[in-house]
Amino acid sequence: MIIGRDESRCTGCKICQLICALHHFKEHNPKKAALGITGEFPVPGTYKISLCTQCEKCIPVCPTEAISKQGDAIKIDPEKCTYCLICVDECPFNAIFVHRDFEVPFICDLCGECVEMCPTKALYWEQ
């Protein structure tokens, strides 16, 4: 299972980011979300959703083997991570995130809160 995205339905409301940060960190701070929403304005007036597709390309690039697949989701081991950010640079979907408050990048763990809260079904479960 992955979280699918239909960017044509995204309105840029960022409820997904808000609930993501609340669920994982108990914080009102969409900049601590494990998905990104970027508006493309004034033309063409659409939104890009950056979200892990479980492509696993981050796993081999990590020099300390901190990244692995556990169950359906990618996990980053904070004990092994050296914050080199190679995974962030190499992710083809810009779906690994950092915030100055954290010493480890963060990535979608497929909790599904964003799917539940997305008001336009731009995010959905996909086999």
Partner: peptide, 19 residues
Amino acid sequence: VVNNKACFACAMCCGKYSH
């Protein structure tokens, strides 16, 4: 109309973006 456009945390997305 080309897209729906929302303010922060808004599910209703009353903004309509047009070409």
